[in-house]
Structures are given as structure tokens and as C-alpha cells.
Design a protein around this nucleic acid. Structure first.
Lengths: 144, 144
DNA sequence: AGCGGTTGTGATAATGGTTCTCATTATCGG
DNA sequence: CCGATAATGAGAACCATTATCACAACCGCT
């Protein structure tokens, strides 16, 4: 399924669905795992060579705002983004250090925040959690 | 206690202990909570106006390498560092969103990693955790 | 279809943090 | 003190990101 400019409600939530944004959304959908803004710009330009860098940055910002994309870390100074497949649900990410695959993970912290608060005296209002490891494919394929 | 150039073993682990590095280490010790490289450079220059930015960056990199400093996040595009008071012990950080104070916290994840692994099929090999909240002082002083 | 207001676009300049360059200087073991 | 070499400082270079600005596309309205 490919994004369409005709949709009244789209990945951007509000805002106009322009041809460039369709291109960018399509490119993002075809990305496997995480990507930088530059990766996305390169991919988008394969469909429409006229798409400007600034447009990609703006589109990514808008897509992140709408929750369709999520910032999942960084790689050598560039922000990494990925499709968010977990919707509004509070979650974090499992990043495979072998193949780069990114999966959402239920927040493992809610159960232990109280313990941390008691131990530290802090009132915890938010947190970042990123788990690194090997995805099932890389575990079975790479072990041994 | 102030760093001394005479010590054979110092914050840098290996490498030469120069006057500039002493200045930088002293400045870092006098910082409360987290600071950017620029903050540190400004502070160091209050003692020795000739300390260059590049030197501070290099010193911070070396101090991070030796474990004496730790990268604890970022603020508006600049990396944040803080003295590591937890030594080699595996830990994370509690960052007060009100005063910026940073405290080490025991890792709350070890107990639940197994659950995540079972649920996801990933083999978790590492993780980043940062907790944001209000430190005891800001809770009692800022509430009500 | 025409209009006006708004939003998005693209090229490019600007910004800002960080790293690199390189000649010079300081440190350290002997 | 000496030689080897790591460290320094000034500024340029670098890179990701953001701002600027003139122009085009889109929307609702008539």
C-alpha cells in the first residue's frame, strides 16, 4: 500500500499532502529499520530528484510530530528515525546491533520506577530506554 | 581536593597531565550537575584564559575514555557531561528537569530484561536508560 | 475560473557543535 | 639537560540542521 495525496487524513495528521510529501512517506515506508534524514532524502530523490533537503527535514519533523515517525537514536552525529509501529502506546525500542532492525518494546520500567523513586528521593516524570541486542533472526543465524 | 600535576595516576588514566588539563579537571570538579563542553571551557578559562576550545574537547574525550566523566545526555544540540560518581558500577542517571542535578541510579532493568527477551525474541546485550524527574530538593521546594 | 490567504517548496546561506590541521610547546623517562 | 612524542591553541574545516526568501501549489469561497 502506497500513500495517496487524496486522503483527507494522512501521515502528517494536519497539513497538506503534497507530491513531495507523498514521495517522502513512500520512501520512509520502504526503508527497513532506522534511517537518517539524509538516507531518506536520497531514497526520496530516487522517485523525485527535485525534492530538496530542507523539505525532507521539514517532512520528517512533521511526521515525527504526528507520531508517524519516531526518533530512535543517532548514528555518528545524525539523528536516526524509524517508522513507529506502536502508535500512541508508551514504548521503547529494541535495536539489533547486527542488522539494525528496530522493534518496539513495551516499557519495562513502569514496574520499577517506584523502587527507584524510593531509593533516590527523585520523583520520576519521564524516561528514555533503549535496548540493544540481537534480533531473533540474527540470534539463530549468527550464533555458533 | 584539587587535582595535582604531580600524581602519577590521574583522571586521564594514561597521558600527560598538563597545566591545562589540571585546570579543566578542577573546573569539572567544581561544576554542579551536568555541563556542556562549552560550559566547561568557560569555567576553565576563568582560571586560565589561554585554554583553547579544542583542548577542552580533547580533555573531555580523554576523561570520558578513562571513565572519569560520563556523557549523560544532550541539551539543545550539545552533549552533556557529568562527573561519574558511581565508578565502574553499572548504573544510569536520574536527571532533575528543574535544577539539572544528576544522580546515579542503580540499573532498574536487570530484573526485567529476561521478560523483554521472552516477549520479543531479542537477546538483549546492552541498554541505555535515562530517568527524568524532580530531585528531592526541587520536589519539596517547588511543590505547592 | 478567478481570488486571496496560507502552506509548502527549493536553493542557498547561516548557524552551531565538533573535529582537524599544523607549527609550536610542554611533559616525561632517562 | 635531551630526545621522543603527546598536547596545545588558533582557526579552518566539517557536517547536520535551521533559517531565509521568493515563488508555486493548494484551499475555500464566490
Amino acid at each position: 500500500m502506497v500513500a495517496s495525496a487524496q486522503e483527507g487524513s494522512h501521515a502528517f495528521g494536519s497539513g497538506r499532502m503534497t507530491a513531495q510529501r507523498v514521495t517522502i512517506v513512500d520512501a520512509a515506508e520502504q526503508m527497513g529499520g532506522a534511517f537518517t534524514v539524509d538516507d531518506l532524502a536520497v531514497a526520496a530523490r530516487r522517485c523525485d530528484a527535485t525534492v530538496g533537503v530542507a523539505t525532507v527535514y521539514r517532512a520528517v519533523a512533521a511526521l515525527e510530530e504526528s507520531g508517524w515517525l519516531e526518533r530512535v537514536g543517532e548514528r555518528s552525529g545524525s539523528a536516526l528515525f524509524a517508522r513507529c509501529s506502536a502508535g500512541d502506546h508508551h514504548h521503547h525500542h529494541l535495536i539489533c546491533t547486527s542488522c539494525g532492525r528496530i522493534e518496539p518494546a513495551d516499557c519495562p520500567l513502569t514496574a520499577v520506577v517506584g523502587t527507584v523513586e524510593t531509593a533516590s528521593g527523585f520523583v520520576v516524570t519521564g524516561h528514555d530506554v533503549t535496548l540493544y541486542g540481537l534480533c531473533p533472526d540474527c540470534v539463530t543465524g549468527g550464533e555458533g
